[in-house]
Write a protein that binds this DNA or RNA. Structure first.
Lengths: 336, 336
DNA sequence: TTGAAAGCGCTAACAC
DNA sequence: GTGTTAGCGCTTTCAA
């Protein structure tokens, strides 16, 4: 195992002091052109890269940004991670990602690990950990929350207009003539899940409709949850011509339940999602949903983190969703 | 921003020297029981966690394992990442993941960044970077290659029996009575893609069949690639009753092309994948494929990396795939 | 068994 | 502009 080159070696070879090399590396101060040229040549020749651990220790910054995601193998959060990584690409910062695996205590531990690693900032993707936990943490490190409102975190939340998104879906289905709805929600403790559900219900109320409680199910935003919920909905025997899912992943699970039950989409049941993850356009039939520019949201989150680190104030973002009509919705066969 | 607790503070509060605290932390030497108790109490009270940067600098190990993945939002590699993360969970090591975005130069850069970060080992998931690049790297840091053979890397490759997997698929379709096949392959430069293709062709030859070259397409292992390839296959006008895809993601894309073309699955065309990613059982119809325990492969990769770091020799793993028959395959309607 | 002291590779005052 | 000098928080000889 070859030993890595150090800054001291570079300095020696170039006949300058370590500080000069450091200054050139960081642009901290002016350096005479001839020395700069000499040093840069040596750096290139030796293929020198500064040791980030040493930089972190000496500089008090670790040049890393911690990211907590509920899951590493989620189509949805995966896109956000890709956006974050891309946005950090041309900066000295690097993301370090830990998953909370949809469990509160794991998420807590993930945050602790990141703190121990002395990350310079934290980006929290969704997540189920309590606001109470986050607030004290925000005293130790700048936090950007994505897809959730954290009371007391001020402007550093990046959210989607969930109510608008769900209204677009509901109005689309209502205008197709649907009157009998079933709904699969995310978990109670997730603020965006509650926002979507509330918007759905209020839209229906405005149209003079109230879905029976038995047709309001919970699927925890996961594929399996959506499948189970759809199975329970079908088992009620209650009629519905449209099945509204609070995210695309649950719609995918629900699709399987409908397939197994022999219900055709959209002929027998119209199906909708929320998020427009990459795989939704590949479903059979392609899914009508609401586009949440999750990759861009990831990019924004990274930018906000960088701004915070640069001493600038964070700026609240509210992304606007967009209806994407595909083949999974159609007028009900027998309008009731 | 509260200042983190340091080892020196702990030592002072407990009335011992820093070295003693360090020894307790690392189990490096025996410590008198009473001091140990006192120190541990202080650690707990102050919620002290050692600074990993400082540990890295002083100890010469960064306690991180670099992971290079082609993509952060891939159902397939996402599972592997989850496996790696889980396996490292109860160790002092942490993964740091960088994506190569399916581009050689990015992958190279990812490896360089990880080296600069002084990772203690590297796990390379698939990837398209040349073996030539990997071999010198292996001198600087232990490397585990997953899903590809790297000549010269010795035992530290974890692979799947691709030939067996493809044989299972081909034999399944042949036994259903299919005689007219189309095939969508991964890229030329990926050794596993070539292994699967070779196995497919040899299986067909044994059955006395040779698919026309126009029905052998390339889809680069991605959804869009599969869709495009399937569109080109359909455009040839040549008949085929079974469409074999070298991975599930391409099968998903191909499914959309078939849907758009009005070809029913499996009535008009039987469709198969490879990998059994989590979403394949959720396709409409659920996909017949070959299961590659990718999560477990991730776990193994992490274990091998830990063994290497522990000075033990790596051990070559060859995982055995398993046929998973679902609804996307059926006998051809008009056996030709 | 324990403490003192040196040093990991770098940055940042501080002088010159 | 540039070099010298202290550390950053930890581990690890080396003595005691």
């Amino acid at each position: 195992m070859l030993e890595p080159v150090t800054l001291a070696q570079v300095a020696r070879e170039a006949g300058v002091s370590p500080s000069t090399v450091s200054r050139i590396l960081n642009g901290t101060a002016n350096v005479a052109p001839d020395k700069r040229v000499r040093v840069e040549a040596v750096i290139a020749r030796l293929n020198f890269r500064p040791n980030p651990q040493a930089q972190a220790l000496a500089g008090g910054r670790s040049l890393t940004i911690g990211v907590v995601t509920p899951s590493l193998h989620s189509t949805f959060y995966g896109e956000a991670l890709a956006g974050i990584e891309a946005a950090l690409n041309d900066t000295p910062y690097h993301p370090i990602v830990i998953s909370g695996q949809w469990r509160t205590e794991r998420e807590q531990e993930a945050l602790n690990v990141l703190l121990a690693r002395r990350v310079d900032a934290v980006i929290l993707l969704g997540g189920i950990v309590d606001d109470e936990v986050l607030r004290p943490l925000a005293q130790r490190v700048p936090i950007i929350a994505v897809g959730r409102e954290v009371q007391g975190l001020g402007e550093s939340c990046i959210v989607l207009d969930n109510a608008l998104g769900m209204r677009l879906i509901a109005q689309h289905l209502l205008s197709l003539g649907h009157r009998q709805f079933a709904y699969i929600s995310g978990a109670e403790r997730q603020s965006d899940a509650m926002a979507r559900k509330a918007a759905f219900l209020s839209c229906l109320h405005e149209a003079g409709l109230t879905p029976p409680p038995a047709l309001m199910e919970v699927g925890h935003y996961l594929e399996d949850g959506g499948q189970g919920a759809a199975e329970r909905l079908l088992a009620t025997g209650l009629p519905f011509t449209a099945l509204v899912c609070a995210n695309d992943q649950m719609a995918l699970g629900a699709r399987l339940a409908l397939y197994r039950a022999g219900r055709r989409v959209p002929d027998d049941v119209s199906l909708t999602g929320f998020d427009d993850v990459v795989t939704s356009r590949l479903m059979t039939p392609p899914l009508t949903t609401v586009r949440q520019a999750i990759y861009d949201i990831g990019v924004s989150a990274a930018h906000e983190a960088l701004k915070l680190l640069d001493g600038q104030p964070a700026q609240r973002h509210v992304f606007t969703p967009e209806l994407v009509v595909r083949d999974s919705t159609a007028p009900p066969r027998r309008p009731s």
